[in-house]
Design a protein around this nucleic acid. Structure first.
Lengths: 238, 238
DNA sequence: ATTGTAAGGTTGTCTGATAACCCTATATTC
DNA sequence: GAATATAGGGTTATCAGACAACCTTACAAT
């Protein structure tokens, strides 16, 4: 029998749980922009925690731009205006369907990035890419080292677009996906899969240096489709 | 003489000031990734505030992904890796080059979303889309009303993908762009531009209902290219 | 009609205490 | 000798209660 440690899941930070609970209430429209949240005292009593915890939760929501607090008045829900940040809960990616959604989002970004990188990359970008490739090949087995190198490759490619937002978004998404894969993999990963992955990365690299955007896009496209297949994901492809 | 009220600037939230102070220490390299922050007690004594304030400041840094706290051990500075959220400063978009970068990022996302929406949309989605279109057409001039409707259209399309992340990211990006445009326009917008914009949106809508993803993508593509041209942006197109 | 004042409620900050947790060193057991 | 228990001290997490700062409202005073 195999052990099941799933239920020892620790507290995971009390304020964060309360913040995401309230955040969900807002996201799902049970509290509307302009509404006032219950007082901290009341929230504390409702959740059965101390006021410190509630305060920290509200502070988090304030940082995320979801609410605004006015001393002596209360905490108010803000409109979709000015929500200055995007946040993804890592735990949500344990759901296969959610994971698939994020992977689907990643595809057009990476493909476009490959095309832009083909146009805009310079020698420095190419060197970073080759460094990452070397580390990928060098790693005997697909250890953590290899995963870090994979992430570095995609970050390097995004950097080569010379568009800061591609780096920001791809780096963010790729890392979330990488973490989720890393957390989920129970079995060791097969040699041949590693070899296929490396071969695909080399293909992307080679396509990029030709400076043909369509070639680079195609290479990235097959890589992502291949990766999805290895993860047993079925995506909408066209 | 004109009054000068600049110095009455209020407290501006004690924890926020301390958080940004520590954040600056990190940004400017006086504390390196991996280092441990002083203990909360010590920080409280150093800044001359209570531990609650220090805790809230550290909580803010943790939300921003700058530090990680481990109970019983301390608070540690994180590397640029693993920042759990994406944030875009609205002010940055005043720079035309930066604005262009974000618009370029938006393109592949919206195009892919149009394709997915063609496949996955249901009647509810279509209704939302038509509502937005109606509000766009209804607005006599291209007032705020029209801008809101435009945003609603793109959000409705993203919703129709039935992929939560497309909605999250497109909603976020489209809003930033919309705000930036709104802030920049000084002159009134010409009638013909409005008409062209509406016509393009209708084309997207009609392409989507055919359930042909390539058609929907093409429609969205021409819309974005058209919009970019009207903004006098030159994008990399292929 | 305007201004002053008081009351009540809410967030902001302070203080002190206890729980949960981590690390290290030492003792214990085999 | 090596592995395991136990104890101690330090740190963050949470709790509890209090007071300060501030806003709103209502009412009184001018």
């Amino acid at each position: 029998m195999t052990a099941d440690f799933s239920e020892i899941r620790r507290n995971e930070h009390l304020p964060a749980r309360i913040a995401s609970h309230i955040g969900r209430e807002i996201a799902e429209g049970r509290i509307s922009p302009g509404d006032r949240l219950p007082t901290e005292h009341l929230l504390a009593k409702t959740f059965g925690v101390s006021r410190s915890v509630v305060r920290e939760a509200i502070a988090q929501l304030r940082n995320e731009g979801l609410v605004e607090t006015r001393q002596g008045v209360g905490a108010f829900v803000l409109g979709p205006q000015g929500r200055g940040s995007i946040r993804i809960e890592q735990t949500a990616l344990r759901d296969p369907e959610t994971f698939r959604s994020l992977f689907q989002l990643r595809m057009p970004l990476e493909i476009e990035a490959a095309g832009l990188a083909a146009i805009h990359h310079d020698d420095t970008d190419l060197k970073k890419l080759d460094d990452a490739l070397a580390r990928m090949t060098g790693a005997e087995k697909w250890t953590d080292q290899g995963i870090v190198a994979d992430l570095a490759f995609h970050r390097a490619l995004a950097t080569a677009t010379h568009n800061e937002y591609f780096l920001l978004f791809i780096g963010f998404i790729a890392e979330r996906i990488s973490l989720a894969i890393n957390a989920a993999r129970a079995a060791a990963i097969l040699e041949e899969i590693v070899e296929a992955t490396i071969a695909e990365h080399v293909a992307i690299r080679d396509a990029m240096v030709t400076r043909d955007p369509m070639l680079a896009r195609a290479a990235m496209r097959s890589h992502l489709i291949g990766a999805a297949a290895r993860l047993e994901l079925t995506l909408d492809i066209f």
